[in-house]
């Protein structure tokens, strides 16, 4: 499943929402099997890029391929975690049932939930340390636990490419450390994480690859090079009207 040699190829990817240009001619390659940070100011198109990688947005121009596949044909390999999951938190459902939903895309509407499926759900719960919470209604979880539940659902789904939109937003110190630890584990297992991130020092410390966006692509490659003074200046300058403020 884990395919290190897979590469997302983006060719002149352009997305418009009405008259607003959200992404402008982004051409790059994102190698799988690593931690990739998407960096850029608000409105730079980070979420748009993630949604394009999922194949959800009609591209105004350009194309995205993984191997020779359109992203739409990639699930269940792709998993997506939106900024703040817009789920119904008061839905009468337990943690285990949410994680079990990860199997539904493969099973379809009618596939039988066999013992093997149950074991996969158990393994996912165990991997994310959710066994003690399995029978809880989801409203009773903390923010970090809720996030882990959705990551467990993605694992149960069998995903190996994770698209995370601002996963560190609203996490406290302990939850951040926990998530980082998890991402390192996934890295060792050859999984791919592409995450929109605001915290530059976090990106520098933990993500080997980075994409710097400001509607167009400013730079892509090893994080240290991408997040150089000059590049950050280009990406953030027009968003910083305060004299002398620097990213």
């Amino acid at each position: 499943m884990a395919a290190h040699h897979d590469i997302f190829r983006l060719q002149d990817v352009t997305v418009r929402y009405g008259r607003r240009l959200a992404l402008d001619g982004v051409s790059t390659q994102i190698p799988c099997g690593g931690l990739v940070a998407l960096v850029g100011p608000n409105g730079a198109g980070k979420s748009t890029l993630l949604r394009s990688l999922l194949g959800w947005l009609p591209l105004t121009r350009g194309e995205i391929r993984l191997g020779d596949l359109h992203p739409r044909h990639l699930h269940p390999r792709l998993a997506y975690l939106p900024q703040r999951a817009e789920v119904e938190w008061d839905f009468p459902i337990t943690v285990r049932e949410v994680v079990a939903q990860g199997r539904w895309p493969s099973l379809g509407f009618f596939g039988r939930f066999s013992a093997e499926e149950k074991r996969r759900v158990d393994r996912a719960l165990e991997e994310l340390d959710l066994i003690p919470l399995a029978q809880e209604q989801i409203r009773r979880l903390s923010g970090g636990q809720q996030q882990r539940m959705f990551l467990a659902r993605a694992i149960a789904q069998g995903a190996d490419i994770f698209l995370l939109d601002e996963p560190f937003n609203g996490l406290d110190l302990a939850a951040t450390a926990e998530l980082l630890h998890l991402l390192q584990q996934w890295l060792a297992q050859g999984r791919t994480v592409i995450a929109a991130i605001h915290d530059l020092s976090l990106a520098r410390a933990h993500f080997s690859q980075a994409l710097l966006l400001d509607t167009r692509l400013i730079a892509a490659g090893p994080t240290a090079e991408v997040l150089s003074e000059a590049n950050l200046d280009t990406a953030f300058r027009r968003h910083m009207p305060v004299l002398g403020a620097r990213p």
Partner: peptide
């Protein structure tokens, strides 16, 4: 399954096809 996802988490239901 479709109904549960549609009510509980439309984003996932979309990603799951």
């Amino acid at each position: 399954r479709g109904i549960v996802l549609e009510v509980f988490d439309p984003t996932f239901s979309r990603a799951a096809g």
